Simulated assay, not measured.
Amino acid sequence: MLGWNRKTDRIQVGQWLKGRIYERRCDLSPDGRHFIYFASNARWRSESKGSWSAISRAPYLKALTFLPKGDCYEGGGLFFDDRDYWLNDRYNLHRLARDDSGLRRSMRSPWHESYGKGGCSSIYYIRLQRDGWAMKHTDASSGEEVTTFEKPLRGHWVLRKIAHSGWIRREGTGHDSDEHALWNRRTGRLIELPRWDWAEVDGERLLWVERGRLLSARIDAEGLCEQREIYDFNPLTWASLEAPY
């Protein structure tokens, strides 16, 4: 878990987890203080029941609100605002073991549509649209679901996010992964960026992760310019760190 101050581009290394965090089922509160996530370590006889949803204080993972689950369906959630969140739990299978976050759980649905069957798409696609991405189309003809999202940039450029979901695994990825491309609406030029694992618009700059490095650039008529590295994650190794709360 990492803290990122986008005003200064300072990165703070937080806690590690010996397990799997389902990144598509996570969300950060608007004020950046709290993190809701779903994780699994397959220790089915432990207090966590092998998988759990939790709310922590970013950039740490120690649970303030701790909700053991016991399987890997559903889980995680979304924030409505700094104090109110929604838990992805249609069938009420989470067990509340601790609740010290001071936040309020809302039972109302965060979106008028639903995606998937309570898994990653059910949160991820809502989160993308909430954060300004326009869902363009979905194609399932290849045996997996491929959904294209777009966000406008300056100079007629558009950032495309192609979200893969299903059981087909592309080389170097999991079952759920993203590809990206830049498309110019005026000229029709398409720049495919298959090595980008994540990308987002931040004001006048474009941000992305490629080969374990966080990078930024500006956009001009030709595409990317003034590229620079913000942080290289490759040298990071496991460290045991206690949360300061």
Rank of each mutant, 00 (worst) to 15 (best):
T173L: 09
G172T: 13
S177P: 09
T173E: 14
A163G: 13
I162V: 11
T173S: 14
L190C: 08
G172E: 08
E192H: 03
G188K: 00
E179D: 15
H180E: 06
N184D: 05
P194S: 09
I168V: 12
R170H: 13
A181H: 03
R186E: 10
S165W: 07
E171N: 15
D178K: 10
W167A: 15
R170Y: 13
L182V: 04
R169A: 12
R185E: 10
G166S: 02
A163K: 06
W167Q: 11
T187E: 01
L182S: 11
D178A: 07
E192C: 04
A181V: 02
R189S: 14
G166W: 00
T187P: 02
N184Q: 05
E171F: 14
G172D: 15
G188D: 00
W183T: 04
E179L: 13
N184I: 01
L190M: 07
G188S: 01
W167I: 05
N184A: 03
L182G: 11
W167E: 15
G166I: 00
E171T: 15
W167H: 14
L193R: 11
R189G: 09
R186N: 07
W167F: 14
R169V: 15
E179N: 13
P194M: 02
W167Y: 07
I191K: 03
R170D: 15
E171Q: 11
G174L: 09
R170L: 12
G174H: 06
L193A: 13
T173W: 14
P194Q: 04
A181C: 06
G188L: 00
R169T: 08
